[in-house]
Design a binder for these strands. Structure first.
Length: 297
DNA sequence: TTTATTGT
């Protein structure tokens, strides 16, 4: 594989963004063999600007991060949830929330809420309302608004587009909505209900017999349309037992008459597909785990 | 009831 060849299409993107930003210097560096002069054309921030930052040691192991690291986990802790942002998909990797019966009721009013850009995300990696407009997709909550009626602020926080993913309207308004209602109902039976929700981008076999991850992107920010969504429920029963239920639904119209149990999947399949791990965290917290697997009543 | 979008 020739790196130079497949890097070139991305170069025009980098140049466009760099020129638009204004504060651009040109890195004058001898072209290394095989790079085809690419380095000499890449825009970088002026060194003075980078050096102004206090953060990184200039000696020892930290020196390789002298000019900063290009990305770190983006955790957003809000009134109603904690989420991990995925700048590549312009959405969340996962959102975790705690459901309690008393939090399901209160002054929170959906009518006063509006979906909002998340200003804490860099504009390059941020979804906007314009991206969704006319796309044919709903702005589907990951942490649901109705889970947080206990405070207007808590409900408002669910309307950040970082807590949203493009969702097929029929799914959002029917089967997925039913799954969310079911989660709220579980607060009547269980002392504590933890819900972790996120998108999946699952590989699929194409006509040539090979596996590909293929997904649509919408808007000028290329917001990724998930192929599926998952929900992992951690339920604390009154007796102290912990129950685990994990669901996956395709981002497609789903007949709402199909029982929710049919969407149960082994937690391991979500862990393998998502790159996330739930079980080690759960197991260190309990020796009393009951996993509700597919095929359960 | 809750999930939304679009148009005026």
């Amino acid at each position: 594989m020739q790196a130079g060849r497949w890097l070139v299409p991305g170069l025009s993107l980098a140049l466009g963004a760099g020129l638009g930003a204004g504060a651009v210097a040109w890195l004058n560096r001898k072209a290394s063999p095989g790079m085809g002069g690419l380095w000499s054309r890449l825009p970088v921030l002026p060194v003075a600007a980078a050096a102004a930052g206090p953060v990184v040691p200039t000696e020892g192991p930290g020196e390789l991060a002298k000019y900063g690291l290009p990305g770190l986990a983006q955790l957003k802790s809000r009134e109603s949830y904690v989420l991990c942002y995925d700048p590549r998909s312009r959405s969340a990797m996962w959102v975790i929330e705690q459901l309690k019966p008393e939090r399901l009721r209160g002054p929170g009013d959906r009518q006063t809420c509006g979906f909002q850009e998340d200003d804490s995300v860099h504009v390059y990696h941020r979804a906007t309302n314009a991206d969704y407009r006319g796309s044919g997709f709903d702005r589907g909550h990951l942490a649901a608004a109705a889970n947080h009626r206990w405070s207007q602020k808590a409900m408002d926080d669910t309307f950040y587009l970082s807590n949203v993913a493009p969702q097929v309207p029929h799914l959002n308004q029917n089967a997925w909505n039913n799954l969310e209602k079911y989660c709220r109902r579980l607060t009547q039976t269980y002392h504590n209900v933890y819900v972790c929700t996120g998108p999946l981008f699952l590989p699929r076999r194409e006509a040539d017999g090979k596996m590909y991850v293929k997904y649509q992107v919408i808007g000028k920010n290329n917001v990724a349309v998930p192929t599926h969504f998952f929900k992992v429920l951690i339920l604390e029963a009154p007796g102290g037992q912990i129950e685990l239920r994990s669901y996956v639904m395709p981002n497609a119209p789903v007949d709402e008459n199909i029982p929710l149990e049919r969407f149960l999947v082994p937690i391991e399949s979500i862990e393998r597909a998502s790159g996330l791990l739930f079980m080690p965290n759960i197991l260190t917290r309990t020796s009393n785990l009951k996993a509700i697997a597919p095929g359960a009543k």
